[in-house]
């Protein structure tokens, strides 16, 4: 029973990892740039929600959409101001750029007096409620995390499969230049991708906030998104979420069955093994240069 409990906790935690990885994979797949800022975007999302609810006084149901909207706008802004000018530069320049944005975001939050340096709780309506399923007591915040993740994935799938914009994004991810020649506004699409990634990260932040406390360093959880993305294959959206869940479950089980310390590195051990055995992940494609 205890094991099952751990499993469910792991899945819920894994959904958060998966969502952060999802944003990361969205950007990587579409623009081939690696974003190290996803964790900080999540942190910003959580803080924005917190500020809207506690300082501005919005009710939860108003705070959530406004947070999402603001974060999507912020993502588009990042792309427009910072990423677009260095399109075509070596990938690592962009990695450093996103690290820089992360530094700024963390620094800016820390500078908010009275808020940035403390641990804060997000006052969600379902806080501290539990649901009993077959004798298991499950925190409502975990159930919400899983449910929202599933719904979000479904929406994204429908978008990529059936909408014009989704198909255009897929085309651009194959070859930006070719897509541009076909009349697809690649730059605007990249902006939209960043917006979506920021939005997804904000969702992750709002879902994680009730489970842990909010603080300015919570963005470091975003580093766990990389193992998730690698396990999922870096370029596969369902792979990212599934990878996140796998990492979450392994971590939770490692914490339950193994000595202290293994929980924190389980994700990284898994990713190292994965890179040695199957570098393209579970769902990634094989690329090979033609000469």
């Amino acid at each position: 029973m205890q094991l099952l409990q751990q499993l469910i906790n792991g899945i819920a935690q894994g959904c958060i990892y998966g969502l952060i990885a999802l944003g990361f994979v969205l950007i990587y797949k579409a623009t081939e740039t690696v974003s190290f800022v996803q964790g900080e975007l999540m942190m910003l999302g959580a803080f924005l929600g917190l500020i809207l609810m506690t300082v501005v006084g919005f009710p939860y149901w108003l705070a959530v959409p406004s947070t999402l909207l603001a974060m999507v706008a912020f993502g588009v802004l990042i792309e427009r101001i910072a990423v677009r000018p260095i399109l075509g530069e070596p990938a690592f320049s962009i990695v450093m750029l996103t690290l820089g944005i992360g530094y700024v975001a963390r620094g800016a939050i820390m500078m908010i007096p009275g808020l940035g340096t403390d641990f804060q709780a997000l006052p969600v309506p379902y806080r501290d409620q539990t649901v009993e399923i077959g004798g298991l007591m499950i925190g409502a915040e975990r159930l919400v995390a899983v449910a929202v993740t599933v719904i979000l994935c479904l929406l994204l799938f429908l978008m990529f499969r059936f909408t014009r914009i989704g198909i255009a994004m897929q085309a651009a991810s194959q070859s930006q230049l070719a897509a541009y020649y076909m009349g697809i506004p690649v730059r605007q699409l990249n902006g939209l991708v960043w917006g979506m990634a920021a939005g997804v990260a904000a969702v992750a932040g709002l879902l994680l906030a009730p489970i842990v406390l909010i603080d300015s360093n919570m963005g470091f959880i975003g580093l766990k998104a990389f193992p998730a993305a690698v396990v999922g294959g870096m370029t596969s959206l369902p792979g990212a979420v599934l990878g996140g869940v796998i990492i979450g479950v392994i971590e939770s089980l490692a914490g339950y069955t193994m000595p202290e310390g293994f929980k924190d590195v389980a994700a990284y051990v898994v990713v190292l093994i994965m890179l040695m055995v199957r570098p393209n992940g579970l769902f990634g494609g094989q690329f090979r240069k033609k000469v």
Binding site: G100, V104, G107, A108, M110, M111, P113
Partner: peptide, 15 residues
């Protein structure tokens, strides 16, 4: 006095 200043400055310089 804020602790975030250094992080902010580093980030801005890096960007």
């Amino acid at each position: 006095q804020t602790v975030g200043l250094q992080s902010l400055v580093y980030g801005l310089i890096l960007i």
